[in-house]
């Protein structure tokens, strides 16, 4: 809400800004796809591992739990998977995700796409969108851990390696999405 008011008061500067620095169109999906594929390939060649995102978040969560309740984290096998006796945040995926944060920002800056806003369909309110963003995130975090990875770690990485579980996972993601897409069409259309 606050953001909205802020924007309204800066309406004129915004219009000027929009004219001077128009948002660039997104890339041809196939070109972007080849770019992503080459990034993934370079991870295979250099490191012998794929990309990931939820793994880094798991490491951060596990580290946080271990900081607050060391004994609790010690007894939980899931957290133990992400903890090392060294600093657990000195981890490949954590650094990779920091890179993603930076890379996304760089791309956004050059394409004039960096701005505070809420992306949503035209028919829902900002607060509904925000509540469901958190809810969707919770489901995503839970589901990703059950599946042993998210879209980056399983679908993309495992997909390229023709991993059976990853392909089953990927098809399930699309199936799950299409299954309820119609019910929630108000959100996006």
């Amino acid at each position: 809400m606050v953001e909205e008011n802020q924007f309204r008061s800066e309406e004129s500067t915004k219009a000027f800004h929009k004219e001077k620095f128009p948002e660039q169109p997104y890339w041809n999906p196939y070109i972007a796809g080849i770019g992503l594929g080459l990034v993934l390939l370079s991870a295979f060649v250099l490191m012998g591992r794929g990309l990931g995102a939820s793994g880094a978040i798991s490491t951060i969560v596990a580290t946080g739990v271990a900081k607050i309740a060391p004994n609790h984290a010690q007894s939980n096998e899931f957290y133990q998977n992400y903890l090392t006796n060294e600093n657990p945040l000195k981890d490949w995926l954590v650094f990779e995700v920091l890179g993603v944060l930076f890379g996304g920002f760089i791309s956004g800056i050059f394409a004039n796409r960096v701005k505070f806003k809420i992306v949503k369909g035209p028919r829902i309110t900002n607060s509904t969108r925000m509540i469901f963003a958190v809810l969707g995130g919770i489901m995503m975090g839970f589901g990703a851990k059950l599946a042993g990875g998210c879209t980056s770690g399983q679908a993309l990485t495992g997909g390229a390696l023709l991993n059976l579980g990853s392909w089953a996972f990927m098809l399930s993601v699309f199936a799950g999405g299409y299954l309820i897409a119609y019910l929630f069409r108000r959100f996006w259309l």
Partner: peptide
């Protein structure tokens, strides 16, 4: 992995992103 995939798919429609 199949069950996790479905949960991810639902989360995608509700939240609009993946991690």
């Amino acid at each position: 992995q199949i069950v996790g995939g479905f949960i991810l798919g639902f989360g995608f429609i509700l939240g609009g992103y993946c991690p």
